[in-house]
Design a binder for these strands. Structure first.
Length: 488
RNA sequence: GGUCCUGUGGCCGAGCGGCUAGGCUCAGCUCUGCAAAAGCUGCUACUCCGGUUCGAAUCCGGACGGGACCUCCA
């Protein structure tokens, strides 16, 4: 595998060359959604970012096992390791089974991911399907003396763990600072240390989602599911682990601790964290109530939006920012991206029609190289896009007969689009509905021919009328050097 | 309060010691019967105050603004 991919590793806080443990095989784990409500645009950003990385690894020729879990159990409402989990709470509210909630939002999530043209992961395991595995790991951690059981709940002993391990490795914080920042234990608490977290939680009688265990009836803690499922499908040590930045400090820190306490190995060589989507500079989150749902974006049915947007325009908007930067959402910014996206797509259409010359004025191979350099530099899609707009300029100039390209260069441009726009960023043009479209195509050809006749007769009144009427119907006519083109 | 990140032109966003991306908007020009589209040109920026350096948006210190995490969240 010859490539020069470098990845910013959160674990080391450095950009490092990507070297898989077992090339050409790559193991990649990403923390998926908690399916108790609709995913919002911020969630989507994370999964779209990781989809882009997955696609690039595939493009480079790796055989990737991409595991993205579905959290459908054990995710608590508060930090106190008590109370109902999110599914049971919502389920009671709606008088339905918890698994009904899970089913509904899992299906919804997949629909949205499909809407954004992301590839399905290789495995999409659910936490409820891995209760045994989670219990086994918990048992082993107790055996290794890094966890203790009190009244049917099992806690991870952070203090003990940090004597022999660096608990704060992922965040580079000082343990004392963490302790200082955390809540004092009060009489209600049964855990020993302030930073201790639950691996298994005792269920109250009214609790809906619960399972038998060596420690009584209960349900798993949040962090243990990822340890269990990543170990099961990718092994004790794999290549990439990703998730949103908000998971770094707590979830991923605990996950690493669990894995080391379980088998002595830190799970992943490279940790990747995607940054947040913000609205008016503030993080989009369920709890703040500033969420935009993917479907609202398409329909325009949200106070923040002036209109609906094509899912691919939204995806393009995201790709214009590096995954590790915050992206501020606004209607105005989205409008800019939408225009840019359509221009990129238009130029791809134009590319299919331009004809070759004996020589080239542009160095297309160099441009392709720059595209790879951008992607190799920690998946820098904004720079990639900047390079792609260079191709837009070139294609349009050839179309205007201002410069020339050889057939080899035209073919190379087509390959650049296919590789970077469609395969790697996962953008797609509107798929043409061939049957009705071919009929429409013939009708439009007829109309345009009539208009040309009118123009040739200097009957501009008639030609303008045709254009205006078509405009009203949503069809835009553009007169070019070699006749007119149309688009909807 | 603690820890950390961040502040780029009208807007969105790359860059992160010299070569000053890209997109959108706006203005002008070319093309065009007129439009639209396209091409070209222009508006040329790095919060502020110090310091390091031959040279800083980029490194260091400070101030101010914004944000994240520390508590469920991608």
């Amino acid at each position: 595998m010859t490539h020069n991919l470098h990845i910013h590793n959160t674990l080391t806080r450095k950009k490092e060359k990507f070297i898989p443990i077992n090339s050409p095989f790559v193991g990649m784990y990403v923390c998926g959604p908690t399916v108790y409500s609709d995913v919002h645009l911020g969630n989507c950003r994370t999964f779209i970012s990781f989809d882009m990385m997955y696609r690039y690894l595939l493009h480079l020729g790796y055989t990737v096992r991409y595991v993205r879990n579905i959290t459908d159990a054990g995710h608590l409402e508060g930090d106190r390791d008590e109370g109902d989990d999110k599914f049971a709470k919502k389920a009671k509210l709606l008088q339905v089974e918890p698994m009904e909630i899970v089913q509904k939002y899992t299906v919804g999530f997949r629909e949205i991911m499909n809407l954004y043209n992301t590839l399905p992961p290789s495995i999409e395991p659910a936490a409820t399907g891995h209760i045994i595995e989670q219990q086994e790991i918990t048992k082993k951690i107790i055996e290794n003396k890094f966890a203790y059981e009190i009244n049917g709940t099992v806690y991870f002993d952070v203090e003990k763990y940090s004597k022999t391990n660096n608990y704060t490795e992922l965040t580079n914080r000082k343990l004392e600072d963490l302790l200082e920042g955390s809540r004092e234990l009060d009489g209600q608490d049964e855990k020993k240390g302030r930073l201790d977290f639950a691996l298994w939680i005792k269920a109250k009688p009214e609790h809906l989602m619960k399972w038998p265990s060596p420690w009584g009836i209960g349900f798993p803690g949040w962090h243990i599911e990822c340890s269990a499922m990543s170990t099961k499908y990718l092994g004790e040590k794999f290549d990439l682990h990703g998730g949103g930045m908000d998971l770094q400090a707590t979830h991923h820190t605990n996950e690493i601790a669990q894995n080391i306490a379980y088998c002595g190995k830190s799970p992943a060589n490279y940790w990747l964290h995607t940054n947040m989507l913000t609205v008016k500079r503030q993080r989009m989150s369920k709890s703040l109530g500033n969420s935009i749902l993917p479907m609202e974006l398409v329909t325009g049915n949200n106070p923040l939006l002036s209109k609906g947007y094509h899912p691919m325009a939204i995806k393009f908007f995201m790709m214009q920012t590096h995954y590790s930067s915050t992206l501020d959402f606004s209607d105005e910014a989205l409008q800019g991206s939408e225009k840019a996206f359509y221009r990129l797509m238009e130029s791809y259409k134009t590319l299919q029609t331009i004809s070759a010359a004996a020589s080239s004025n542009e160095n297309i191979a160099e441009l392709q190289k720059k595209c790879y350099e951008a992607m190799d530099d920690d998946f820098n899609t904004p720079v990639l896009i900047a390079n792609l707009f260079e191709t837009v300029r070139i294609i349009n100039s050839v179309n205007d007969k201002k410069i020339n390209l050889t057939q080899t260069d035209i073919d190379l441009l087509k390959k650049i689009y296919q590789d970077f726009v469609f395969d790697i960023m996962g953008l797609k043009a509107d798929e043409e509905n061939s049957k009705s479209n071919s009929a429409l195509e013939k009708v439009m050809q007829l109309v345009l021919e009539m208009r040309i006749k009118a123009k040739n007769n200097k009957d501009f009144a008639a030609s303008d009328e045709i254009r205006n009427k078509l405009n009203e119907a949503g069809v835009v006519i553009k007169d070019g050097k070699d006749g007119a083109t149309w688009s909807i």
